[in-house]
Design a protein around this nucleic acid. Structure first.
Ligand SMILES: [Fe+2]
Length: 214
DNA sequence: TAGTATCG
DNA sequence: CGAC
């Protein structure tokens, strides 16, 4: 190996705001392995568009792995151990996911992060995710760790209220963003995914969100 | 309200 | 488009 090679453990962890950390290309070298694992999860728990409590369809297609999966339907948002489509448990969280998510959290100063939930959001051009808070978990001392794969997107990170000022952050294939502590409940979302073709995963973006649900 | 309609 |  040459010293010029960039490995995940060498990726810089930039604090883009208090308690918000960007690890540019942190998972770049693991992207192909991650995608292989994602496709295996999809075979057991195919991505599907879920309904919001208001009855509208989300534009991102959802799957999950781990002990708990985030779901939404007419009854609300919650974590469930079962896939509502099959009634079976969500697929196991791959060890690679846990290891990389915990490593990223540690670089952001969150020691011993052990995610029990991995939400997999699949976006196609035209898909978006409106501003929302991640607040269905029990322990808000635990951070949120988000992996980006595929097409780039503008991530918006706002404040405690929906109308608070927002920061725009471009997230690309291989990037990781981590937030917590005073920002744990801040609003965030992504703008509409633009048309494009990614050489590794085609015309889509896949986001992995790691959380400690319980 | 993890969406949508509407405005600029 | 993106803000509201
Ligand atoms: Fe979120």
């Amino acid at each position: 190996m040459s010293t010029g090679d960039l490995f995940a453990q060498d990726a810089p962890c930039i604090e883009i705001a208090a308690d918000v950390y960007l690890l540019k290309q942190f998972i770049l070298h693991d992207a192909s392995a991650l995608i292989t694992e994602i496709e295996k999860v999809f075979q057991q728990a195919p991505p599907r568009k879920m309904l919001t409590p208001g009855g509208y369809s989300m534009s991102a297609a959802i799957s999950n792995c781990g002990n708990y999966g985030w779901v939404t339907d007419k009854n609300g948002y919650r974590y469930s151990q079962q896939d509502p489509l099959t009634g079976k448990h969500w697929p196991m969280m791959p060890a690679l996911f846990k290891r990389l998510a915990s490593q990223a959290a540690a670089l952001a100063g969150f020691t011993d992060f052990q995610p029990d939930a991995c939400l997999i959001n699949s976006y196609e051009p035209g898909s978006k995710m409106g501003l929302h808070q991640d607040k269905d978990e029990l322990d808000f001392n635990q951070p949120i760790v988000s992996f980006s794969l595929g097409l780039p997107v503008t991530f918006q990170f706002g404040g405690k209220q929906r109308n608070s000022p927002k920061q725009n952050i471009e997230l690309s294939h291989g990037d990781v963003i981590v937030w917590g502590r005073q920002k744990r409940l801040n609003y965030h979302g992504v703008l509409t995914l633009k048309v494009g073709e990614h050489p590794v995963i085609g015309a889509r973006r896949i986001n992995l969100t790691f959380r400690r649900a319980r």
